[in-house]
């Protein structure tokens, strides 16, 4: 546990000392802010649905960008040799990096709290969907970060890592759309596997344990794959 914290803190700090995290947060805030104000102004809604809709998709893209360096850069700089020869478990390295990037993502979400705060000041919003919306974003974010970390473990090229992560996330997101073309049994599987089919519930204030389990298990799966991929580099 101590090792995971040490690595997570180091990753979090190194995000703060490079421009990447600021650029990513800036884009996230600018775009979600735009859609939040459009939806509030156009539909006179006191909800954050406009923010959640665009935020969920943006989160996938930005997670791929945030995580691309986590292991690919270590491989390229040779610092992976430090981590893999230190008395650390491979899983501790992966979890440390995961939580480090999750810290940045969480901080990014906290910065958007001013949307609901504005609503609270100028209106009377339904608190439920706001809270579940944020829970949904955080869970979706965890999944996207885990996928990105896995992609980063495969290569020493950050761009390749980002593209692979984007590809996997895109496939998972749109798997639901492909369901319409498939026979019923397959369609249900695709629907269940899709990142996008589980998100709308959170936007409307519903917390479905199946969705929580879904996001957490996909996260765990990719963290496991990332650990195996790291282990595998010892054998080559």
């Amino acid at each position: 546990m101590k090792n995971i914290t040490t690595i997570a803190i180091k990753e979090f700090k190194s995000y703060l000392s490079s421009p990447m995290a600021y650029v990513v947060s800036g884009i996230f805030l600018a775009l979600t802010g735009f859609f939040f104000s459009i939806s509030s102004a156009t539909y006179f809604e006191t909800s954050i649905r406009g923010f959640l809709g665009i935020g969920s998709i943006l989160l996938l893209l930005l997670a791929a960008v945030l995580t691309m360096r986590l292991l690919a850069e270590e491989r390229k700089l040779g610092t992976l040799e430090l981590l893999l020869t230190a008395p650390l478990r491979d899983s501790e390295i992966i979890l440390g990096k995961f939580f480090g990037s999750l810290g940045i993502l969480a901080a990014m979400l906290v910065l958007t709290f001013y949307y609901p705060i504005l609503l609270l000041i100028f209106g009377d919003p339904d608190i439920g969907p706001i809270i579940t919306g944020y829970i949904g974003l955080l869970l979706l974010g965890c999944t996207a970060l885990a996928v990105g970390l896995f992609a980063s473990s495969l290569t020493s090229n950050q761009i390749v890592a980002a593209v692979v992560a984007g590809g996997i996330l895109g496939a998972l997101w749109f798997a639901g759309s492909a369901a319409g073309l498939l026979p019923t049994a397959l369609a249900e599987i695709f629907n269940y596997l899709s990142l996008s089919t589980h998100f709308p519930d959170f936007m409307t204030g519903i917390i479905d344990t199946r969705s929580i389990i879904y996001y957490l298990s996909i996260t765990a799966l990719f963290l496991f794959l990332a650990t195996r991929s790291l282990e595998n580099s010892r054998w080559n």
Partner: peptide
């Protein structure tokens, strides 16, 4: 261990780099 290509986190200061390594090496 000192590998042939010295493994350094180039964005860290010497002290913070050594601090990180001291921690992961217990």
């Amino acid at each position: 261990y000192l590998p042939e290509a010295v493994p350094l986190y180039t964005d860290m200061t010497v002290t913070s780099y050594l601090d990180f390594l001291a921690r992961i090496r217990k």
